[in-house]
Simulated assay, not measured.
Amino acid sequence: MNAARAIWFKSSHSNGDGGDCLEVSPSFPAMVPVRDSKLSASPTLVFSHAGWAALVSAMKEPA
């Protein structure tokens, strides 16, 4: 994966004051790259589609 060619989208749940911002890229059909928008040069987490769906589902469940 060459993250330099990725197109990134900020989460619709990110707040507007510059904190808690997550970006996801749909540029790679076999994976879901995720990064911190405040630290775009930092390492990128890469999930399979099933792994990303499981993470998002788990985060929606009440604690």
Rank of each mutant, 00 (worst) to 15 (best):
L39T: 05
V34I: 15
S48P: 06
I7C: 00
P43M: 06
T44G: 01
L55V: 07
S48W: 14
M59V: 00
A58Q: 15
A4I: 03
L22A: 11
R5D: 00
H13K: 07
H13S: 02
S57M: 04
T44Q: 00
G18M: 05
P43W: 03
M31E: 11
S25L: 08
M1F: 00
S37C: 07
I7L: 12
H13V: 03
N15A: 07
A3G: 01
M31S: 14
V46A: 10
G51C: 04
L39Y: 04
P62N: 11
S48I: 08
A58C: 06
F47W: 06
P62R: 11
A53C: 06
G19A: 04
M31C: 13
A4Y: 03
S42Y: 09
V32N: 13
A3V: 11
L45F: 04
A30F: 04
S11A: 04
S14V: 05
S25P: 06
H49T: 02
S42D: 09
V32S: 01
A58R: 14
A3P: 15
A41K: 02
A50H: 08
P62S: 13
A41M: 14
V24H: 13
A6G: 08
S42I: 09
D36R: 07
V32Y: 03
H49E: 05
V32L: 00
R5F: 07
G51F: 04
L39Q: 08
S57Y: 09
A53Y: 01
A53L: 08
D20L: 06
A58D: 14
F9D: 11
V56G: 15
A3W: 10
F9Y: 12
K60N: 09
S14D: 02
S27C: 06
M1R: 07
P43Q: 03
T44W: 00
R5M: 13
V34Q: 09
P26M: 01
H13G: 03
P26Y: 13
L45M: 11
S27M: 01
K38C: 12
